[in-house]
Nucleic acid binder design. Structure first.
Ligand code: SF4
Length: 360
DNA sequence: AAGCCGGGGGC
DNA sequence: GCCCCAGGCTT
């Protein structure tokens, strides 16, 4: 049984980890420089999102909005389009709210105090710590999923990471070991270690630069860490959507409500039920209060899995008279549709529509 | 404290 | 299928 971490050991661990990072760090677009705006955008994108997914979005975002000024007052349609497919769309709306706040209340400079930065919309304890350490060289912990995993193993911490108060335990553990002169490198080293070596399944302990400090490795019980009690369950929903064209060939679309799932994104008008829909045309017509001429045959089905629910989407087609268009809907050309942000399940719907149409 | 909020990748 | 991912907000 190895002893509790000594002060000397903490110091050594920190130095070894930072040296490893400086030797082996991943070259990533947001690591080209430490401008606070770039760090901020990357940290928001990386919330619950893997590095490889983020890279192209980050590149595109930065070329669209090179400075906070470019982003602060861009139209919502444009910022959602830049986020299209990335998920958790409130992130980009909160980011714009926060960057407006920085523009108006902080003279365009991302604040350096923990209290101020934490008050910004969408910036929680993790993101605050990441920005302060990486952009401003402050020794602040940034506790995320990687830190839970790496530290629970290093120190055999068995607190339940599902519980809110557990974050404090890990913040203290990091604070006791964080590099005082290179906190940004230290925190990013933990990310790289968690992503490439100390992975959820089959950690590569043989290649681990801090293996000699690791208590779980020494005790051979890595699989016990981290401990997480709750698992989430998903609900099933049944949708019917329709590709509906007006006499001039435009397509019927609708903006989603400003709150809730996929807020403010666009879709093909849809109905949602708890159970499989029996008569697609009858139910759909009952749910959309415009006269429609619907084809009584399903184009096919699209399945989509969210974190907390599953969609089963039946697709039908139809036509309408443009004179019958009511408030809340739009008839758009293909060019107009391209500019609107659509969630992935509706992109799947559109792809299926194009495929079946090309087969005619 | 628990639920909500996307989408993709690994196994 | 399941779990995880550079989490935060709302209730
Ligand atoms: S020795 Fe293994 S379990 Fe411990 S920190 Fe390194 S990779 Fe993770």
């Amino acid at each position: 049984m190895m002893a509790k971490w000594s002060e000397i050991e903490k110091k050594q661990f920190s130095e070894v980890l930072v040296e490893w990072y400086e030797r082996e760090k991943r070259e990533l677009p947001w690591r080209e420089n430490t401008e606070a705006y770039r760090v901020w955008v990357s940290e928001i994108m990386l919330q619950q999102t893997q590095v490889d997914t983020v890279i192209p979005y980050f590149e595109r975002f930065m070329s669209l909005f090179p400075t906070m000024k470019d982003f602060a007052y861009a139209p919502e349609e444009q910022i959602l389009k830049a986020w299209e497919g990335l998920g958790y769309y409130s992130r980009v709306r909160n980011l714009q709210t926060a960057i407006r706040e920085v523009t108006e209340a902080y003279d365009g400079v991302v604040p350096q105090s923990k209290e101020a930065i934490l008050s910004l919309k969408g910036v929680g304890p993790y993101t605050a710590g990441a920005i302060l350490s990486i952009a401003y060289n402050q020794p602040e912990a940034a506790v995320d999923g990687n830190v839970y995993r790496v530290y629970s193993r290093l120190m055999r911490i068995d607190d339940d990471i599902s519980k809110a108060k557990t974050r404090k335990v890990f913040e203290q553990a990091v604070n006791e070991t964080i590099s005082q002169d290179k906190p940004g490198a230290f925190n990013q080293a933990l990310m790289d270690l968690g992503a490439t070596i100390c992975t959820p399944k089959n950690p590569k302990c043989d290649m681990c630069p801090v293996q000699k400090y690791c208590r779980a490795y020494a005790e051979n019980d890595i699989e016990k860490y981290p401990f997480k009690s709750k698992k989430l369950k998903t609900k099933q929903k049944y949708l019917v959507t329709a590709i509906i064209q007006s006499n001039d060939g435009r397509f019927l679309v609708q903006q989603r409500p400003s709150e809730g799932l996929l807020a403010n994104l666009w879709m093909f008008p849809s109905i949602e039920e708890e159970k499989p829909v029996e008569d697609l045309v009858e139910s759909y017509q009952a749910g959309v209060s415009m006269p429609l001429y619907l084809n009584n045959q399903s184009l096919g089905k699209v399945k989509h899995v969210f974190s907390h629910l599953k969609w089963d989407v039946e697709i039908i087609t139809g036509v309408m008279d443009e004179a019958d268009l009511i408030e809340g809907y739009r008839l758009v050309t293909l060019e107009e549709m391209k500019v609107l942000p659509f969630p992935v399940p509706y992109q799947k719907v559109w792809q299926l529509y194009l495929k079946t149409r090309s087969e005619l």
